[in-house]
């Protein structure tokens, strides 16, 4: 497959994978740690959405599905399917060390491993998936925080996971 098309497909799948899993597991609802709360409030002050801000703060402060979606293809690239599963295990340990129950990160890593394996059948390599994931996380954390937090807030609202904190 053409590399550029592969990267675009991988970026879209990685984006959907980590945003939906993180939102489902309640990242926009409460800041897991103090740092996530501070980031959320700061993004809200700069014209963003508080739920989206908490989401961004949470993925920055502990290894959630975003870290899982990045580390799983790295594991698969290095060690095959075993590496993806090992990545999920290590992310779970990382989550517990960050005082996080670990549902989002672990399940995100496992689903990302499944995606990498499935995409390998149409010629998308784990390396391509890593590039796609880096692009996906850049659209959330690296371009415009207020714009991306509003988008994340809308997705959280649609899934009924908006924050009740004012």
């Amino acid at each position: 497959m053409n590399e550029i098309i592969g990267i675009i497909i991988a970026a879209i799948i990685a984006w959907i994978n980590f945003v939906l899993i993180d939102t489902y597991f309640g990242l926009p609802e409460v800041p897991g740690v103090k740092g996530a709360g501070i980031i959320g409030r700061d993004i809200e002050k700069r014209g963003g959405n508080l739920s989206g801000g908490f989401f961004q703060g949470n993925i920055l402060c502990s290894p959630d599905a975003s870290a899982g979606t990045l580390l799983a293809p790295i594991g698969v690239m290095l060690l095959g399917v075993n590496g993806g599963i090992l990545a999920a295990f290590l992310i779970y340990i990382g989550n517990r060390l960050c005082a996080d129950p670990g549902y989002a990160g672990t399940i995100g890593a496992l689903t990302a491993t499944v995606w990498v394996v499935l995409l390998s059948f149409i010629g998308i390599t784990p390396e391509t998936f890593i590039v796609g994931m880096v692009i996906a996380i850049t659209t959330i954390q690296g371009i415009n925080h207020s714009w991306s937090s509003k988008l994340l807030g809308k997705i959280a609202q649609k899934m009924g996971k908006e924050t009740n904190i004012n």
């Binding site: 075993n82 590496g83 599963i85 090992l86 999920a88 295990f89 290590l90 779970y92 670990g102 672990t106």
Partner: peptide, 9 residues
Amino acid sequence: IIAFGLLAL
């Protein structure tokens, strides 16, 4: 998670 993590290791 612990079971297949140890196995993957």
